[in-house]
Amino acid sequence: MKFLTTTALALLASAGIAGACEMTLRSSDTHPDGYPTVEGVKAMAAEVEEKTDGRICIEVFPSSQLGEEKDTIEQTQFGVIDMVRASFGSFNDIVPVTQLMSLPYLFRSVDHMHNVMDGPIGEEIAAGFEENDLIALAYYDGGSRSFYNSQKPIQSIEDLEGMKFRVMQNDVFVDMMSALGANATPMPYGEVYSSIQTGVIDGAENNFPSYDSSGHAEVAKYFTLDEHLMVPELVAMSKSTWEKLSPEDQQIIREAARNSATVQRELWAEQERASEEKVVEAGAEIIRDIDKTPFIEAMAPVYEKYVTTPESQDLVKRIQETE
């Protein structure tokens, strides 16, 4: 286990609201202040403080002040930190079912993802976290990833043939590109701009805010809205902290967390719209309304390779059948 740095401990000790509350819960986020996930947990904190008459406060530490995601997840499991907001991808080694959420085209749309995660399947997945000393409180929106490139508008699966795309260092994404007829080139995120600019790769894949903030829209102006990947984000609490709360306070926190998911999702949608408008004004071309069916059908060998147990096959089937 990696323990908190001296700086992080000082930050915890100096939290301004600590003295005014009977219990102060420390929540970690890697994103900067003002980011939708940070503001979502702040909304949760405001509701909890109001409904407990100030007895319980939540102090949010953004910008990786308490550590990176995997470190802070571990610290939350041990009760060193009370809460953490992290991507499902960071839980893959702890809660194996989260790996399924990285399957390409698993979710048909953002609404489909929300309906799955907010329903019985989300509750079932939450049980896997509790077995690992974490209480899943709310599922946030991490956005959807789509393809962008410097060469041409991608309007069909045939247009991907032979193209070179940067993907994260992940076997699923490498196999996804192969199944689509393209070539995967794993590389650090910071190298993508120059690699597109110099023709080392044709493009990459990400969401609108990243496409905008990274400057990739300047060198890869064709953005195809295929939404091949939607990975949920999670707000989780340490089980040891949770068990210190009364049933009444647990209910308050759970309701506040779920309400905060609505706030976070709205803020994320606003950020996506703003980034989309910005890149379009700068000359990016957005390719919409493509027929996703051939893309989805091409994933059959990927699913065959990674969805191997009866339990995972059943879960994928139920996710796909959810309206």
Rank of each mutant, 00 (worst) to 15 (best):
M1N: 07
K2E: 09
F3G: 01
F3R: 15
L4T: 07
L4C: 02
A10G: 12
A13C: 03
I17H: 12
G19S: 13
G19V: 09
G19Y: 08
A20N: 13
E22V: 11
E22Q: 15
R26V: 08
D29C: 14
D33I: 15
D33G: 04
T37H: 14
T37Y: 05
K42G: 07
K42V: 06
E47G: 08
V48H: 05
V48F: 05
K51H: 09
R55L: 14
R55I: 10
R55S: 13
I56T: 07
E59C: 10
E59G: 11
E59V: 12
F61A: 07
S64Y: 00
L66V: 03
E68I: 10
K70C: 05
K70T: 10
K70F: 02
D71W: 07
I73T: 05
I73V: 09
T76K: 11
F78P: 00
G79L: 01
V80F: 03
R85V: 14
A86Y: 01
F88G: 12
S90V: 13
R108T: 10
S109C: 10
H114F: 00
H114L: 09
M117C: 13
G122E: 02
G128Y: 04
E131K: 15
N132H: 09
N132L: 04
D133H: 12
Y139G: 06
G142Y: 00
G143W: 04
G143E: 04
S146G: 06
S146N: 01
S146M: 03
Y148C: 07
K152E: 04
P153S: 10
I157A: 10
E158I: 01
E161D: 09
K164V: 07
N170V: 03
N170L: 01
V174L: 00
D175H: 00
D175S: 02
D175E: 07
D175F: 00
M176G: 02
M176V: 00
L180A: 01
N183I: 15
A184D: 02
T185Q: 13
Y189S: 12
V192F: 00
Y193L: 13
S194L: 07
S195M: 11
I196S: 13
T198C: 03
T198E: 12
I201A: 02
D202I: 11
A204K: 05
N206K: 05
N206Q: 15
N206H: 08
P209E: 03
Y211N: 11
D212I: 02
G215H: 14
G215E: 13
A217I: 03
E218C: 09
E218K: 15
Y222H: 12
Y222F: 15
H228K: 02
M230N: 08
E233R: 07
V235S: 14
S238L: 04
W242E: 06
D249C: 05
D249N: 14
D249W: 12
I252M: 12
A256T: 05
A257E: 11
R258S: 06
R258I: 08
A261T: 11
A261C: 04
Q264N: 12
A269L: 11
Q271S: 14
E272D: 13
E272W: 06
R273H: 06
V279N: 09
E281R: 15
I286H: 06
I286N: 10
R288D: 12
D289M: 06
I290F: 05
P301S: 07
E304L: 01
K305I: 02
P310I: 01
S312W: 09
V316G: 03
K317A: 14
K317D: 15
K317T: 08
Q320Y: 07
T322L: 10
E323V: 08
E323N: 01
